[in-house]
Amino acid sequence: MSVRSAVNGFFFEPVPLGRVAAMRFLAGLYVWIEWWAYMPFIFRHRFVPEELYQPLFIGRVLPLPAPNYWIVTGTLVVMLAAATPMMFGYRPRLFGWILFAAYFEWMIIANSYGKVDHASFGFMTLLLVLCMMPAGARWGDREHLSERVGWGFKLVQIGVVCTYFLSAWAKFRYGGFDWANSGVFTWAIIRRGTVFSNWMLDFPWLLHLAQWGMIAFELLTPIVLLVYRWKRLQYALIAFLYCFHVAVFAALGISFLPHLVAMACFLPLERLDPRATVRRLRARAAARRAAPTEREPEPQFESGP
């Protein structure tokens, strides 16, 4: 196999169109969840004085106005209004671009007050990619394969992996090896610990070991991309990543929900078809109603002489 064919096989691996419909639904559903359950503080920025606004670099370049009550509220309304038709496959490209633009502004509002989160990087990439996916994608379509879809989802997958890998790079950039030998996990547990993690405070050596393990884990995440030919192994690694985030949430209450939504593009979601599932359930219910009920045999009495 030549290098060119290997590169093309990696970046343009054909993916069924059914996965596009599933990812559109998940993306729109997450947008509805985010503003009131996952990150409700973003909407509260409509009451924050404009003097506290410290725009990101992209916010200074464009430039974008400082958020106020009407800008924050209007951005949310547009975002939710565009997410609804897109997630159900109605004009998904048109409403996908509107959603991406609104969510882009939403993230600038969220990250321009002194704290920048990296959990939404892969999700932002997903929204951008979905704008350019085939409009006719339908749930459960496993027959029609597209290299174009494979290219788009590969970019999302790279963004997901970069979220881990560049996190380790940032640790070395700002903290060096002192990060791994520091008390950052101890501080995190003291601040946000739960019943699942407070016991670890009695074992500081275990926390230091976990910090080194975290760096090693993040540096090794590109393996998920390299094993794309061995799907079962790749799915097992993705399952491990999901379990890792469940453990982090149980220990510290920290959730990477948008990142987990974007990571779903690794999975064979084209096997899901809600309409077919509903039809099967209805058919089974109708078959049960139509089936004749078995009557118990009537007792037979012997007649006397």
Rank of each mutant, 00 (worst) to 15 (best):
R4I: 15
D117A: 09
R289V: 08
L80C: 10
L166Q: 07
Q157W: 01
E105Y: 11
R295S: 11
V149P: 00
I158S: 01
L237P: 02
G122Y: 00
M263P: 00
T186N: 01
T277M: 10
Y113C: 06
T163K: 00
Q300E: 10
P65N: 05
V15E: 05
H259F: 15
A210R: 03
M124I: 12
R19H: 12
G89H: 02
N181A: 13
T194S: 14
K154C: 14
R232Q: 13
H45K: 14
C131S: 15
L52I: 05
V248S: 06
L29H: 04
A82W: 00
P134I: 08
V116M: 10
I98G: 09
A287H: 03
L26G: 12
P65R: 04
W35V: 13
V149M: 01
L207V: 06
L269H: 07
R192V: 00
F203V: 07
F240D: 07
T186V: 11
V77E: 05
L155P: 00
F165S: 02
C243D: 03
I33H: 07
I254Q: 12
I215R: 02
P85L: 08
C162R: 03
P292L: 06
G304V: 10
L155R: 03
N198G: 04
G213Q: 07
R192Q: 13
N68H: 13
Q54A: 13
H208L: 14
L29I: 09
W151V: 03
H45L: 14
G175C: 04
A81Q: 03
V78T: 13
A290W: 05
S146L: 09
P297D: 07
A81T: 13
V129N: 00
Y30F: 15
T277Y: 05
I58D: 03
P134Y: 10
V77G: 02
H118F: 14
T73K: 02
V61R: 10
G152K: 00
R192D: 14
R271S: 06
E105F: 08
D202M: 08
E270M: 03
L226W: 14
F47W: 08
R91F: 14
I223G: 07
G183H: 05
I109T: 11
L272Q: 02
L52Y: 12
R46I: 06
Y174E: 12
P85F: 07
P49A: 12
F217W: 13
W169S: 06
P49F: 06
M86K: 00
F121V: 14
S112G: 15
E294G: 04
V227W: 06
S2N: 15
P299R: 13
F10Q: 03
E302D: 08
W212S: 05
E270H: 15
P268T: 06
M1C: 11
I238G: 11
T75Y: 04
V248K: 04
S5I: 10
L260E: 13
R280A: 10
A6D: 15
T221D: 02
V78K: 05
W205V: 06
F43V: 10
I254Y: 14
L130F: 05
E143K: 13
G183T: 12
